[in-house]
Design a protein around this nucleic acid. Sequence first.
DNA 1: TTGAAAGCGGTACCAC
DNA 2: GTGGTACCGCTTTCAA
Lengths: 342, 342
Amino acid sequence: MSQLPEQPAGISVPTSADVARLAGVSRATVSYVMNNNTTVRITDPTRRRVREAAADLGYVPHAAARSLRAGHTRTVLLPSVHASAGLPCQRFFTGLECGLRHLDYTVVHYGSVGLDADAAAMAWAELRPVAVVAPGGLGLTPYGIDVLTRSGAKAVITLGPQPVDGAHALLMDQSEVGGCAVRHLLSRGRRSIGVVMPREPGLAQLAEPRLAGAVRAVEDSGADAHVQALPLPYEERPADDLAARWRSLGLDAVFAYNDEYAMLLMRALQDAGIDVPTETAVIGADDLMLGRLLRPRLSSVATELATTQPPAQMIDRLVRNPGGEPEHHRLLRAAVVARESS
Amino acid sequence: MSQLPEQPAGISVPTSADVARLAGVSRATVSYVMNNNTTVRITDPTRRRVREAAADLGYVPHAAARSLRAGHTRTVLLPSVHASAGLPCQRFFTGLECGLRHLDYTVVHYGSVGLDADAAAMAWAELRPVAVVAPGGLGLTPYGIDVLTRSGAKAVITLGPQPVDGAHALLMDQSEVGGCAVRHLLSRGRRSIGVVMPREPGLAQLAEPRLAGAVRAVEDSGADAHVQALPLPYEERPADDLAARWRSLGLDAVFAYNDEYAMLLMRALQDAGIDVPTETAVIGADDLMLGRLLRPRLSSVATELATTQPPAQMIDRLVRNPGGEPEHHRLLRAAVVARESS
DNA sequence: TTGAAAGCGGTACCAC
DNA sequence: GTGGTACCGCTTTCAA
């Protein structure tokens, strides 16, 4: 059958020199034609000859050679976003990626697993990206930022709860989600509030700040209320166990981390004969469709990762106009969608 | 406050020449030291001087220059996977990405939005990737494959329902999902089977083959049964409307595209007084946790994208040992998880 | 043990 | 209009 076209050691990939030879012109002319250079006039016949030769050979310019010569790239480094980061985060990065590509940047995803922050920064710097969005999880240091900047990055942007000195920051303060949820529950007269803490390792990064926000919201309210952390893996059995000892916990409300955990817990509570919301109010987060399909309909904290300017344009602006003060943008908007469960 | 370190036009990024100058050695020596070259002996003092100079300047080698010289890259191009591709697909690519990085490849995600197949192939070829995984959606042509191969790609792998001539193929035959579901429903004695077709544009790519598989399963069974497509957007109102005219459709079973659509539809049916599974059986796909939390518990087609060899190692093997026959690997395993809803 | 120099592929300046 | 050529940063052979 069809053989995968082999690359015999001798036959190498076509270069502009090959095109030039075949078209009977110089490499310079090939470059002019391929780039539609307007400062030089090339006669139409030569143009055509070059184009044909290029097509014949399957010539495609070598990006590395070009950017080496140009002295800069249009590469933007983004973190590979794990599914556990949540839907809003995935949406944000999908949109960012689309936007950047639309602005003619090359998007490269770089995972930072198993690298310490400085090693990651150096690995990234090798690609000479024009901009870098660094995940908050790995603690990018001022030294790492310096390496990236010295390597030519026009914009270094951290993504996380805290800004890092010397870099722009997209602030994603998850504590606001917990705060929102708890303020809502307090306003409904609840005073003894559980906060579900997923056991899945990747989720702790979001869960901890959400809990902290919940605690702070209670403190700030001045109400005689309290918050209790409820560790819970995403499985039926542990949820049933938790529901079985629910009354001993004395809780009248629970912020369930997100809508999926809320569904898990609410089902367990209902199966254990605990009425929602009468005995215990439940609120989730992410405002998924599934919340609207539950009975009672699930209240939720709707979150959105958004900047006033589309994020891709923001990066483009920072790249074109480097050297300004580090900008801090709050990314996460949270708002309660109150339904029947709270 | 802290100023973002500017890049004054004069001060450019440090090169190996700068390191050499500072350390008082030649560029060659710098290269030897930075790459821990063992074929040449460098005295320890020089080693240290070079290392210090590099650290002082924040020198990081230039990947493009290096691969230009080397004549090859370790770049693997993967499609950016949209959230609508489904959880199994996302899991597959996350795993692939991790594995490749572990094997020291640089993973670059490339979206193909707004490009025709041949333009995309040329854009990809500019990066001189050593391997390319091309999404099935954009119809990569033999010409595109040729361009990529001629540009030095050791492995071109298509991902989709059909193999493309001249490339390796990861076959993801979604029709198997529909087939599985329908065979299950037939075995339960159902004969009039609806198949939900999402209206979301991105999902048609999965939905069409699933429907086709459902139809084929009925034909192959020889049973006196039929399949009916049910267009449905992922919203409550249209689901309620569909449920309202449900009895006029005369269906005794429905394959709901996936678990989330199944939840949407099942809730609507129940609200309309139609009993599941007595009057209508429901089965979803993806075997999400939420199916286990519904009442009745949702039957589902569990899918998994898996190769016998871990996919990253498979690509590595194809890269190291190019020129063989195109390999075809069936990626998608589907199996029914029967619960209470069918 | 270290240095000089060629060359990877493409671009752009300067001559002709 | 088109061609010659220097150069981007790095590796590697060969010579010292």
